[in-house]
Design a protein around this nucleic acid. Sequence first.
DNA 1: TCAATGTAGTTGAGTGTTCAAGTATTCCGT
DNA 2: ACGGAATACTTGAACACTCAACTACATTGA
Lengths: 158, 158
Amino acid sequence: MPTKWLSKPQQQAWRAYIDSVRLLQDALDAQLQADAGMPHAYYEILVRLSEAPGRRLRMAELATGTQSSRSRVSHAVTRLEQRGWIRREPCESDRRGQNALLTDEGFAALAAAAPGHVATVRATVVDVLSAAQLRALADASCAIAAAVRASAEHDGRE
Amino acid sequence: MPTKWLSKPQQQAWRAYIDSVRLLQDALDAQLQADAGMPHAYYEILVRLSEAPGRRLRMAELATGTQSSRSRVSHAVTRLEQRGWIRREPCESDRRGQNALLTDEGFAALAAAAPGHVATVRATVVDVLSAAQLRALADASCAIAAAVRASAEHDGRE
DNA sequence: TCAATGTAGTTGAGTGTTCAAGTATTCCGT
DNA sequence: ACGGAATACTTGAACACTCAACTACATTGA
């Protein structure tokens, strides 16, 4: 099957999108690294844990919750454990499992980092889009996420 | 100033967006790594060079063109040079400068990688959104990119 | 002309991510 | 009950990126 290339407007849209994504991610990482000493991915891990009952989650849940690989989470938790922000504990019901548990220090670090992060998110995304634009962005994002998951499944099952 | 937290719909939109971004970037990297042996960032470097007159660009232009830091591009070009896909050459007009030049092998590698990449972009983004959605995504992206650049400038000048 | 300042690019150390391979445990079918 | 397959998680090596420091050249202004 011959490749169906992108039309001009499609290509422009794609580039605008992917460029903005790179800029935004770098900005988020830079802000959190400078002000809170952690990359954005780590911040998201702390957020998930802080919202979980008992501030603890199975490693796999943490991975799916943050759209990450198990390996990534495993390494990240190791790092966060070294800083005293997370503890590991064995899982009751499944002896293969581990829970990651947010410590009080971790919660404090998250609480300290949150205002600056939210300010950045507002300054770069939420406050520069109209409500309708933000909704449209969310809709498109859901469609994209679903498509990525679908195509990953496709690849997996052959 | 007390932090102005995100409203519920704002937070949902933000999470949908940032989750989809992570999924998509990982998918793009995985596809290109598997099929073409390079990460997405390297692919974009080759694309920029392929479109430039004489297939060559100053390092700094390459950096701004790919929304990257100079350091990132410098490391990447070193790596791509080792694979024979890029060559460096001194710049005529400014003896501090370097041009990155896409080799024929590099162009061939890009040509080989392009169909698979475009297919992924279609399957995950372009073909799953309506024309209107894609336009909306592009608009939002432009606003985001502008805001990121503006806030970076803000930080820089103090 | 010359010193000060700015710009272009590189480098190395430290950090984060991926990939493949590993261990340990649980699940499933017979 | 038991052997094979699946699941949960970790690990180490290779790779990519960041940050700060560095060299080299250019520009500015007195």
